[in-house]
């Protein structure tokens, strides 16, 4: 078999299956020149990904957060929140866009039931706390990380939200210790009426714990590399 350029590219991209895959695979294995082409395709992909990675990791400008909010209920909400929290504003300024984003996200769907249990994150939530970075997580990830920061003991803490549970967790020797925990994201009628108190809970939780600015993309990557330990 003499694979076409298209077939070689599709093979390098993992797009082939079944019979075509076996044929191209055999041809590549038998011909070092074809193997070089496959390698070149993969090297190019790696180079392009690396080239654009900094854009996805850079802070998102405030105006884009505002654009998302401009026609949605959520936004009126977020605006109202910002106005209302003015008195504490200086403590929040260093969170910048990360907090703005997390606020909007956090406000969208917290239900208000707050359990007092101080335990450890488990399952999907623990996995997300360990592995997910704010800058690169998938839009559809079942557990979303809102932002990361250090508490007064220097521990790494992360705000998260999921269907089952939302809140703040801090890493200690045993795992991700849950701090303030709220119910899952269950948008429901009447939620907006109570928003003031939900938002206050989220703000207060972070405000009480955070010591210094939220981690940026690089800070998060570093923290993750060291296993979220100080």
């Amino acid at each position: 078999m003499n694979p076409s350029k298209e077939q070689i590219a599709a093979y390098a991209d993992g797009e082939l299956e079944g019979d075509p895959l076996r044929k191209v695979e055999a041809a590549v294995a038998a011909d070092p020149d074809l193997q070089d082409q496959v390698d070149a395709h993969r090297a190019l992909r790696a180079r392009l990904s690396a080239h654009f990675a900094p854009v996805a990791e850079a802070p998102v400008p405030e105006r884009l957060f505002r654009a998302v909010g401009s026609e949605a209920e959520v936004v009126d909400f977020a605006k109202a929140v910002r106005k209302r929290v003015k008195p504490f504003a200086p403590r929040f300024t260093w969170f910048g866009p990360a907090l703005a984003a997390s606020l909007v996200v956090a406000l969208v769907g917290f239900s208000l039931s707050q359990s007092g249990a101080r335990e450890y994150a488990e399952g999907d939530i623990a996995t997300a706390l360990d592995n997910q970075l704010v800058a690169t997580q998938q839009a559809q990830a079942p557990v979303r990380i809102l932002l990361s920061f250090r508490d007064e003991k220097g521990r790494f803490c992360r705000g998260f939200s999921s269907e089952a549970q939302s809140g703040v967790a801090c890493r200690n020797g045993r795992g991700w210790q849950l701090g303030k925990v709220f119910g899952g994201k269950k948008p429901q009628a009447g939620e907006y009426r109570q928003a003031g108190s939900a938002e206050a809970e989220v703000l207060t939780a972070i405000q009480d714990l955070a010591q210094g600015p939220a981690l940026d993309a690089e800070g998060e990557r570093k923290a993750q590399r060291q296993g979220w330990r100080e």
């Binding site: 654009f52 990675a53 854009v55 996805a56 990791e57 850079a58 998102v60 884009l64 957060f65 998302v68 909010g69 949605a72 959520v74 936004v75 984003a101 909007v104 996200v105 969208v108 769907g109 800058a135 690169t136 997580q137 998938q138 839009a139 559809q140 990830a141 079942p142 979303r144 269907e163 994201k185 948008p187």
Partner: peptide, 26 residues
């Protein structure tokens, strides 16, 4: 991924901003 979805429309947009910027930059 194709089965999962964001809880709200705005939620989804916000989470997607970094990737949208990457594609737009390209």
């Amino acid at each position: 991924l194709s089965e999962a979805r964001a809880d709200t429309f705005e939620d989804g947009l916000l989470a997607m901003l970094p990737r949208m910027r990457r594609f737009a930059a390209g």
